[in-house]
Each structure stands twice: as structure tokens, then as C-alpha cells.
């Protein structure tokens, strides 16, 4: 399909246009396009870099502290550590966040609730596991009502070990996530 099919222009224009390329693809391919094609173009081109630049610099996280790492999560947003420097700040509603932090043990009773929260977050979204309890169960490893391996339920991108990790480690974790987003190596492939 060429331009001449739609508007009355000489066929020569079509032939000329076929030689033009944009990001290694013929221009005519891009010209009349579908949503999928637009997504393809965005995925390969520098547009994606711009998008990811925006996303990685504005990671809002869900203020949903659990366990003692939640305390450090609170401190993470306060002076001395100040997550706002990196454009990271907490929001209360899952609809407006990008990152969910699992900051403690998940009991069997709490699992459905937190799964629900995760599904309420709009794409693109990431999840971080912070603290021993979230990674492997920590001191509650062989407890009957604690989920040991949270990665069975969530595609976790960054693990931050520690019991509880210092707020500096939180910053480090977020920096790792930013790096992953920039290099497009995150689990869900944005």
C-alpha cells in the first residue's frame, strides 16, 4: 500500500518514498500502520529510551509498610535519606504508583490482599522485595503461616537483603531498578 492509493499523487513519489527508511525500516511500512506496528516502532527506537528515562526517574512507590522494614521505608522518605532527590515518593493509592515494595513477611491471610494491590497497579509496574522476610522468610523460615518465597507470586526485579536493610540500601535498590529499566532488563520487559 502506498501513498498514491490514498491521495492522487504520481506513482513516482511512491517509488521514491520506498527508498526512505526510518530506524532501518522502509518509511512506507511505517506510514500506514496499526497499533501493533506503533508499539513495534516504539520498542526499537529511541522513543523507548525517552519513555524509560521518564519512567526510571519518577518511580512512585506504594506506601504500604509491613514488618520492621516498613519503619525503614518510612525513614527512607525523610531527611538524611530523602528519596525525593531521585524523584521517588510514596503515594497511598495503588492506582498511582509504579513500584510495590514488599517490605516484610507475608502471612497466608495477607497474601490475597497484597495480590489484589499488585493487580490494581497500572502498567508499567515493578516490584521490589526488601528484607530477609520478603526474600526467603527470614527468621520465620519454617513458620506455618508465612510465605517463604515471594517470587512465586510476584515478578520481583530487585532483592534488597538485610534485616532490616538500612535506608541507604533502599536507595541502592532503587538505583539498581533504575539501571534495569534503562537497560530494559526488568522481568516484565518494559
Amino acid at each position: 500500500m502506498g501513498i498514491s492509493d490514498v491521495i492522487p499523487v504520481p506513482v513516482a513519489v511512491d517509488e521514491e518514498l520506498e527508498k526512505w527508511t526510518i530506524w532501518g525500516r522502509p518509511l512506507t511500512d511505517v506510514w500506514f500502520t496499526t497499533t501493533e506496528k506503533i508499539h513495534e516502532i516504539i520498542d526499537m527506537g529511541p522513543i523507548k529510551n525517552v519513555l524509560n528515562w521518564g519512567r526510571k526517574n519518577s518511580l512512585w512507590f506504594l506506601m504500604q509498610p509491613m514488618g520492621c522494614c516498613g519503619v525503614e521505608m518510612l525513614v527512607f522518605g525523610c531527611p538524611h535519606y530523602d528519596c525525593d532527590r531521585f524523584g521517588i515518593f510514596p503515594r497511598a493509592t495503588p492506582r498511582q504508583v509504579d513500584v510495590m515494595i514488599i517490605s516484610g513477611y507475608i502471612t497466608r491471610k495477607y497474601l490475597p490482599a497484597i495480590k489484589n494491590l499488585w493487580e490494581e497497579i497500572p502498567e508499567p509496574k515493578w516490584v521490589m522485595a526488601i528484607g530477609e522476610c520478603a526474600i526467603s522468610g527470614g527468621p520465620f523460615y519454617d513458620s506455618y503461616n508465612i510465605i517463604n518465597d515471594t517470587s512465586r507470586f510476584f515478578p520481583i526485579d530487585v532483592y534488597v537483603p538485610g534485616c532490616p536493610p538500612r535506608p541507604e540500601k533502599f536507595i541502592e535498590g532503587f538505583r539498581e531498578l533504575q539501571k534495569k529499566i534503562k537497560q530494559r532488563e526488568d522481568k516484565r520487559g518494559y
Binding site: V50, L51, W53, G54, R55, N57, S58, D82, D84, R85, F86, G87, D98
Partner: peptide, 20 residues
Amino acid sequence: GPNRVGGRWGVLQLGADAIK
């Protein structure tokens, strides 16, 4: 306050937020 995105003063912070 924001001081990483867009130079020392973090001026581009809002640009990043808007793109996101």
C-alpha cells in the same frame, strides 16, 4: 528535594513525571 534529574536543580523532574 529533586536534585538528580536534569542537572543540579532537578528542573527536569516534572518532565520525567509527565512522561511517566
